[in-house]
């Protein structure tokens, strides 16, 4: 009974943060800000859902697959975000109007790929 309550709480938290991350994907002004909000919140949200599923199932094959999925998500999603941000900057996607500094464009010659 307690196990089910804790698992459902994790699933609620996960879905809430999924929703906030996707809202950030729609509202924020340029690619880099969208990437920040979406990567953080959606990674944490999906990991929360999977952890809830793991608690509800225990240590059988289903639960272990959920744990492995958490590990995959935590390892791959920051790397994907970093690669997309670098590719966007090198291919010349402009930053938002509110941007204050841009050291990366100052230091690197963007023609030189």
């Amino acid at each position: 009974m307690i196990k089910e309550t804790i698992g459902m709480i994790f699933i609620y938290i996960g879905i809430g943060f999924d929703f906030f991350g996707v809202l950030g994907l729609v509202r924020l002004p340029d690619v880099y800000n969208r990437l920040q909000a979406a990567t953080k919140c959606v990674t944490f949200g999906s990991a929360g859902i999977m952890f809830g599923v793991f608690i509800l199932n225990g240590f059988n094959s289903f639960g272990f697959k959920a744990l492995l999925g958490i590990a995959f998500i935590f390892l791959t999603s920051p790397v994907a975000a970093h690669v997309i941000a670098r590719a966007a900057h090198r291919s010349g996607v402009p930053l938002a109007k509110q941007t204050v500094v841009d050291d990366y464009a100052k230091d690197n010659d963007l023609k030189d790929l």
Binding site: F20, G24, P29, D30, N33, A37, D102, D103
Partner: peptide, 14 residues
């Protein structure tokens, strides 16, 4: 994300 006026000041630093 919830804030109506979006209080952000983005930039790339080193």
């Amino acid at each position: 994300v919830i804030h109506p006026m979006l209080p952000i000041k983005p930039g790339i630093v080193k």
